[in-house]
Amino acid sequence: MSHAPFREGFDLLVENIPYMKSIGARYAGRSDDGIKLCLPYREDLIGDPATGVIAGGAVTALLDHACGMAVWDELNEYKPIATMDLRIDYMRPAQPQRDLFILAKCYKLTRSVGFVRGFAYDDSLSDPVAAAQAAFIISHPCLKNREAHA
């Protein structure tokens, strides 16, 4: 599990993506718990002007992106992937003026599908803002390696 070169470019998978850049998302590292992203609070991302709470849609994008990266983290190599299905439960509003964090982990990889669980939180992971369950299709442009992932 120590293929550093592939993962060294993970920050670019956030910073070089136009939509991630436009909402101000940042890569916050990886661990055995998964991929971590950070979304600093910004007023143009507000979904409810009455409360200043960030839009569910902004959280959606971040969860989608982190979940996709978690598949790459588990694959440990680059393959084209596409979100097939994304379900998000919003448990409570994110606190205004606070950074939002995402932690996503691919807990099962088959040859063609990656299954991922992700959480959005501000203070603590034990009190999440939202939870995501996602499935990604993994494309195989050529069938040269990774036969092990049956």
Partner: peptide, 24 residues
């Protein structure tokens, strides 16, 4: 708009923009 792109190689819209759009 160019800032909605999620995959610059294809290019394709970011899935998150489509999800947010549908939700709104």
């Amino acid at each position: 708009a160019p800032h909605l792109i999620g995959n610059p190689l294809l290019p394709a819209l970011h899935g998150g923009t489509i999800g947010a759009f549908l939700e709104l």
